[in-house]
Amino acid sequence: MRTYKTTMVAFGAAALLSGTAALPTSAAAESLPDEQQCSKLKSDDAVMKGWCVAITRRKGNCLACHGVNTKSPWPDKLAPGGNIGPPLVAMKQRFPDKAKLRAQVYDATNINPQSVMPPFGKHNLLSDKEIDLIVEWLYSI
């Protein structure tokens, strides 16, 4: 969130300095779908489908434990995430090896036995396909 705010301030300052009223494109962007909109979503975009698997309570329910920093605006009807797990930011930088990120979602206890994260793949909470979609989305944020 802090990064997002900083970016907005930077854009605002730039706009003021250049004397134009042009808004940065990110502010005009449509907000992400909420859980209800996700249930009706028709999209082939893996990142968007991954977002929907992630926020849906009977699916990934990632927001129960993780806060998320998204590039597009946050949906009005979606409560912010919890803070039991680390915030989901800069995932590509934190997990340069995509397979390691996937393994973390599949069964985090395999990597750290003390982890409280549910083993989404091992316990069939999500299908292999759904885990792939979540990884695609994580890599986009």
Partner: peptide, 23 residues
């Protein structure tokens, strides 16, 4: 299926936020 012990939430994560709720 979610693989939680009582302690996972009420010891290790006590006071943390589960979405909007506090454990």
């Amino acid at each position: 299926q979610l693989n939680f012990s009582c302690a996972n939430c009420h010891v290790h994560s006590a006071g943390n936020k589960l979405r909007g709720d506090v454990l």
